[in-house]
């Protein structure tokens, strides 16, 4: 069903469930719906599992935030998201501590932690330091995801105008061939999840 208000529409389905478990089937179904909507025009995907009480409540949300939402839709119009991962960069010696012991000289746990520490030092810490700015030539926006020991890959999201998507992927392919040591992978196109997250919790603008 579709809920209309102020020139915006929520595509919705009724459910009796209290929560939507983020299992593979539900997530892919969510992705299929967003992807189908994107064939017709710009879409702001909501966070998976978003529920409203009923259609009237959904309509109130659209009415309350329509200015911000329309601006967000304009921002992602004609754009796709691509996900980039960099699985490895050359290890850097730490000048403060001198050469590190070779992994063979450490226990397995210590070697793993040392590898993570090397990555942490060797990789950029902000979007301003993304190592290959050439990839932004065809992108409207980008962001770098926070890294953690459990997510050691460098992860980035690129918002790319549909018209430049092939050029962007060609740039990625060229970089993959130029720097195979970086272990670069790209997936997508995805709906603009990473560029659809304004925090509207502060109430009506």
């Amino acid at each position: 069903m579709f809920v209309d208000a102020c020139g915006l529409v929520c595509a919705a389905s009724e459910t009796l469930a209290a929560t939507i478990p983020p299992d593979s089937a539900h997530v892919w179904r969510h992705q299929e719906v967003v992807g189908a909507l994107m064939k017709g025009g710009p879409v702001l995907p909501l966070r998976f599992g978003t529920l409203t009480e009923d259609a009237a409540a959904c309509r109130r949300l659209l009415t309350r935030h329509h200015d911000v939402l329309r601006a967000q839709l304009d921002r992602v119009r004609h754009c796709l998201e691509f996900a980039l991962r960099v699985a490895g960069l050359p290890e850097m010696a730490d000048p403060a501590t001198g050469p590190m012991p070779r992994p063979a000289e450490l226990g397995p746990g210590a070697a793993h932690l040392r590898t993570l520490a090397r990555r942490e030092r060797g990789w950029p810490s902000s979007t301003a330091e993304f190592p290959h700015d050439g990839l932004t030539a065809h992108a409207a926006d980008r962001l770098l995801w926070a890294r953690s020991p459990s997510q050691p890959d460098l992860r980035a999201s690129f918002l790319v105008p549909r018209a430049y998507a092939s050029s962007f992927l060609a740039d990625v392919s060229a970089l993959q061939h130029l720097r195979p040591d970086l272990g670069i992978t790209v997936t997508g196109p995805w709906p603009p999840y990473s560029f659809s997250d304004p925090d509207l919790s502060g109430g009506a603008p």
């Binding site: 595509a11 389905s13 939507i20 879409v43 995907p45 909501l46 978003t50 529920l51």
Partner: peptide, 8 residues
């Protein structure tokens, strides 16, 4: 409730 997605 409703599961919702937003578009124009």
């Amino acid at each position: 409730g409703l599961k919702v997605l937003l578009t124009s």
